[in-house]
Design a binder for these strands. Sequence first.
DNA 1: TTATGATTTGACTACTTGGTCAGGTTGCAC
DNA 2: GTGCAACCTGACCAAGTAGTCAAATCATAA
Lengths: 204, 204
Amino acid sequence: MNETPRPQTRIQRRNTEAILQAALDVFSAQGFRGATLDQIAEVAGLSKPNLLYYFPSKEAIHLELLGGLMDVWLAPLRAMDPAGEPRAEIMAYMRRKLEMSREMPRESRLFANEILQGAPRMMAGIEGDLKTLVDDKAAVIQAWADAGRIAPVDPYHLIFSIWALTQHYADFDVQVRAVLGPDRDPFAEAGSFLDMLFERLLAP
Amino acid sequence: MNETPRPQTRIQRRNTEAILQAALDVFSAQGFRGATLDQIAEVAGLSKPNLLYYFPSKEAIHLELLGGLMDVWLAPLRAMDPAGEPRAEIMAYMRRKLEMSREMPRESRLFANEILQGAPRMMAGIEGDLKTLVDDKAAVIQAWADAGRIAPVDPYHLIFSIWALTQHYADFDVQVRAVLGPDRDPFAEAGSFLDMLFERLLAP
DNA sequence: TTATGATTTGACTACTTGGTCAGGTTGCAC
DNA sequence: GTGCAACCTGACCAAGTAGTCAAATCATAA
């Protein structure tokens, strides 16, 4: 059940993986235009021509990362079960999203960079898959609200608020840590804070 | 009561202003490394050498923007009155911040870009002015919570949540609009949604 | 072992970009 | 109007960057 059979040999698999990891490092920290192939090559431990042996261009590496990202990014929302208990489902979604901010901050920043620049390479995915999924889940949440099982909230802005609050801890990590000081654990604290916030928001 | 008397002649005032406006456009949309002096010069309607007649370097323009930004950015929080009615003060702060996202989205994105890249040119301001102010206001909020005048919430994460929720509508504007479709007004809706959210969060 | 294709690289090109500079033009105080 | 400083620009340079390529090296099936 593996994906595209592109990486065939052992060396290919190892090197494409090293390149993508290095590119994720550099793109997420510098943005697309700020990143250079030399930086990526150095982080990956390869020469620049060798890097271009595996990918045809800088843009192709970036697109490969973005392409794979959308699915991962939407998985937690997709997992929200219309048949489940409403508040538990929404809380669980928020928790999974916060977990992703902790475990995948580079991916979060890559995504944030892309949207900040106007999503020039992701508009299709946003207007397509993402919007479709959000419309779908918003309808589910609306039904829960209409049935009085959660407080009446605009489902779209509820989803936006989960995105904003969880991604903030990844995207603005340096600011959060600078303000909190070195002895506090932002993500652990965010967990309890957001639990309370959404409990209070959603209680019917 | 004017600031530094740097721009003296009429022409200087007009051109430095045009340059800073253009630079705000370009830096906020492309990031520091993604922006080019040629782009800024074109938007400003000046030649590149002329632009460098007014500012010594690309970096200097960027620093000028960032330097002026911190004060503007913190003004709403600074205006939160310890002697006021707690919930009204916090709600008003949130509203002012949302208003800034609507009125100054370029500044918001400039700031977001900077933090995303690890705040290489703003760390001092963040660890200094910003942290000091947040510590100060967090103490005020904590006192309000201790006195039972608002629900017991972590004041730092309360402030983070206001930042995250309001700035999201500026920084992720294209995503929000793509999901909501062309006929909805994100900021108007955010106003009522966030009103309700913080009312519910803060009620003792 | 050896042949063959996969992998790697040094050297290179074309182009972009931040910044310089000598000299020209313009605004304005007198 | 004239002189001088402020303002502006075309032409240029050095550094950096994406991408190419011919040739060298390596892995491995037979």
